[in-house]
């Protein structure tokens, strides 16, 4: 009995020591903690407080009963979605399209930022920057109509050039062989300027003396890009890449929904468009939440693994 008490005392004594030390750290870092406080309160109130809504995914939501009162259905909502005969094909389409988007769409703005960084004429540089970022402000509803005209086999400018070069017109918008490429290219076209801004911000911190020194040493422009510009972009590229990989499961609903036609369902029907047609617009809250959760869990796994790889390669991960 006595021994136990003694042990407990010892334990608490150890704890007090630890707690005191912690308290000391808190005090020492009080300004940092103070800086953190408004943000933490924000997260508690606007993210953690409403988070109980996630359970809708495991319930059959009933308006009258509310979130807590609705009946539990276990994994039924997930089964409805995963068990659908089309799940395999829409899941594959999502991954394939997103993979292409990542493969081609991710490096494009980095390349643009590097090219812009090499422009010596400031007026030209600013003009290019400003113009290239404009398409970001147009919604896909509007752009879909524009691309339909541009890519039309009979009157589109693209096919005009193809025939000029002796090729046959291509029905880009309704051909399963081409449609994914159309999605990737149009998305790059829309976002390249906008996405390059963050890389430009990173590049603008490079000490100009480095370039001057390299030039004196006779390093070519390509060499300068490789040894000065790129390394300075690595931290931002890393974090952007981590999130981009996490987004592989998230298809671009606005783009695909506005651009696709039944003819390209086989190649372009993705999770979000499919679920949308499944009736999420018809107040299927539980199903929508389940699909969202499914995607987010996959996304989380992807982000964590990419982060782990990134940590091993460099020091700029999420953690």
């Amino acid at each position: 009995m006595a021994a136990i008490t003694k042990n407990a005392e010892l334990g608490s004594g150890k704890k007090t020591g630890k707690a005191q030390q912690l308290l000391k750290t808190y005090k020492k870092q009080r300004y940092l903690l103070l800086a953190l406080l408004p943000g933490l309160i924000y997260y508690l109130v606007f993210h953690y407080a409403p988070m109980y809504g996630v359970i809708i995914a495991f319930k059959r939501f009933n308006f009258n009963a509310g979130i807590m009162g609705s009946a539990w259905v276990g994994l039924e909502n997930f089964k409805t979605f995963l068990g659908s005969p089309d799940f395999g094909s829409v899941f594959a389409n999502t991954l394939i399209i997103s993979f292409y988007q990542l493969l081609f769409g991710f490096p494009a703005p980095i390349l643009l930022a590097i090219m812009l960084n090499e422009v010596r004429n400031m007026a030209f540089k600013k003009t290019v920057q400003t113009i290239s970022y404009l398409p970001h402000f147009l919604s896909w509803v509007v752009l879909a109509g524009i691309f339909l005209e541009l890519l039309s086999p009979s009157r589109g400018a693209v096919n005009y050039f193809i025939t000029l070069l002796g090729g046959e017109p291509i029905d880009f918008m309704t051909n399963n062989k081409w449609f994914r490429a159309v999605l990737v290219v149009t998305n790059i076209w829309k976002e390249i300027g906008w996405s390059s801004i963050v890389y430009l911000a990173a590049v603008s911190n490079i000490d100009t003396q480095l370039y001057e020194a390299a030039t004196i040493d006779g390093a070519s422009r390509i060499k300068q890009i490789r040894h000065i510009t790129l390394p300075s972009m690595v931290p931002i590229i890393t974090i952007m890449l981590i999130f981009a990989v996490g987004k592989i499961i998230n298809d671009n609903f606005d783009q695909i929904y506005n651009m696709y036609r039944p003819a390209v369902y086989p190649s372009a029907d993705v999770i979000s468009t499919y679920v949308y047609r499944m009736g999420v617009q018809k107040m299927e809250y539980s199903l929508a939440t389940a699909v969202g959760l499914f995607k987010n869990v996959i996304s989380l796994v992807l982000v964590l693994s990419t982060n782990a790889i990134a940590k091993r390669l460099g020091e700029y991960g999420l953690w």
Binding site: L44, P50, G66, G69
Partner: peptide
């Protein structure tokens, strides 16, 4: 555990 706490905090307000 924070999530749970948050849920309890506002869960009752459902209806």
């Amino acid at each position: 555990s924070l999530v749970m706490a948050g849920s309890l905090m506002l869960g009752g307000c459902g209806k």
